[in-house]
Amino acid sequence: MKWKKTDITQYTEAKEYIDTVLIPLMPFEMESDTHLDVNAFQYEWTMLLVNELEKELTGRMMLLPPYVYRKPIIQEQELKRIDSWAKEIKKQPFNHVFFLTLDGGWKKHEEVLPGTLLWLPGMKSGDLHSADMYRFIRDQVEQMSELIQSYW
């Protein structure tokens, strides 16, 4: 399920089958040009990844809009904010919450996160449309999909 009207309509009719949400965590900062570059690239990558993942598991997992936060530090208040997101999500009958990110900063706070963190180290630049990259992302998707299934 994607965050769009047709899918959500389907969701409201089949709630008992969709018990998992996936939220991409996206860092945002404007200060340095190199970080801008990396951020944008990793944003693209993450979106590609979660979209592919959603395609595999569309019948049981809903892909939510990205959670965007400001770098460089993950502060106390950020943890509070993400917690309030999780509380909001729990207003619907979801049992599994997955966060997917390329930002290693979340790893340290894994225990307090209101869900399961899927952190994977990514590249900082490259051609997302090359055949090699496609295969690489496909492999990642396959393994992530298996990992999520193991939680069900």
Binding site: K55, T58, G59, Q149, W152
Partner: peptide
């Protein structure tokens, strides 16, 4: 594409039923 809710099925995806297509979602 699974006819239930659209997940991707795989051949022999379940160890119990190696000779069937299996949808991991439900």
């Amino acid at each position: 594409v699974c006819k239930h809710l659209g997940c991707v099925v795989s051949w022999g995806g379940s160890d119990e039923y190696p000779e069937q297509f299996f949808c991991p979602c439900h």
